[in-house]
């Protein structure tokens, strides 16, 4: 099967300019990225600040185009301008700051903004708005002003706004960076549900390791390159390497690693607190 997203040797360079606009230097934000994503998958891209992960996200939506290399989204070349709109219909994008991506003063009107731009007929817009607000659990707020909602709620509205465009894929560029822990949980839960129930391909860009435990596959980026890849378990087991890229494994994994260093027979790739409790109980009762 052809991959849904296919990046080959993707390079992106930003030029630095002085006040007169002369190029003074070139920053290589992406340096030869190869990533393949299957349709319906849940992929996480991890990276510290400045690792190039947001630049990569913007490529997926054709907001930026490759300097070198190619990127295909659902078979469409992002470097061709005529593909811009079809790509944006296929891959929706949720940004970091919830306030800066909400256009309207009423929740339902904001969710309808995308479909309006796409020229969807009126009745269909209403149907989509209702559907997508329900799928993120924000239907009862449809008449409210986004200004009265919490960060997590606003971010779910933004997701609904993308859902209403019926994309095959949603790219989330650090959607939880500005949220409190409860808002973060709600957003990630919503994203996981969309992936499972609606079979939407999810690309989650983040630096919170806890959020990627549910992903099918994880890419770790640093200095514009993919440094590690694998399932969350495979990646988290290599905590020393992760630390090199300024990433911290989740607390549970850290505990398990510490215990295993002390000579206790415990797997290194523990992801969930329940898992750790189970294993510890088994060890205590002498099963392991």
């Amino acid at each position: 099967m052809k991959p849904f997203i296919n990046a080959k040797g993707l390079v992106h360079e930003y030029s630095r300019r002085d006040e007169e606009g002369n190029v003074t230097g070139i920053n290589r934000a992406l340096d030869g990225i190869d990533i393949e994503v299957k349709a319906g998958g849940f992929i996480a891209v991890l990276g510290a600040n400045g690792s190039g992960k947001s630049t990569f996200a913007k490529h997926l939506n054709a907001l930026l185009v490759p300097t070198e290399g190619t990127l295909y989204v659902d078979g469409m070349d992002t470097s061709e301008q005529k593909n811009n709109l079809p790509i944006r219909r296929t891959a929706g994008m949720v940004f970091q700051n919830p306030d800066n991506q909400i256009i309207s003063n009423v929740v339902e009107e904001d969710v309808g903004f995308g479909p309006e731009n796409m020229g969807v007929p009126t009745e269909e817009i209403w149907r989509r708005v209702e559907e997508s607000l329900k799928s993120v659990g924000m239907y009862e707020y449809r008449k409210d002003s986004p200004n009265h909602l919490s960060g997590g709620q606003k971010q779910r509205i933004a997701i609904a706004g993308i859902m209403a465009m019926k994309p095959k894929c949603i790219v989330l560029d650090e959607p939880t960076a500005m949220l409190d822990p409860s808002g973060r949980k709600a957003v990630i839960k919503t994203v996981k549900e969309l992936n499972k129930k609606e079979n939407i391909t999810i690309i989650l860009i983040t630096h919170y390791m806890e959020e990627v435990t549910g992903a099918d596959y994880v890419y770790v980026m640093s200095e514009g390159q993919v440094k590690m890849k694998g399932t969350p378990r495979q990646v988290f087991a290599r905590s020393e390497e992760l630390a090199k890229y300024r990433l911290m494994v989740p607390e549970v994994t850290k505990i398990a690693l510490g215990l295993s260093k002390k000579g206790i027979n415990i797997p290194k790739d523990i992801l969930y607190p329940e898992e750790l409790t189970d294993i510890l109980l088994k060890i205590k009762s002498g099963v392991l």
Partner: peptide
């Protein structure tokens, strides 16, 4: 950027949610 990502392309070909 967010408007671009949501296919905003000026007034042409736009439909209305609340005509």
């Amino acid at each position: 950027l967010a408007m671009d990502a949501r296919c905003y392309n000026g007034g042409e070909g736009r439909t209305k949610m609340k005509p």
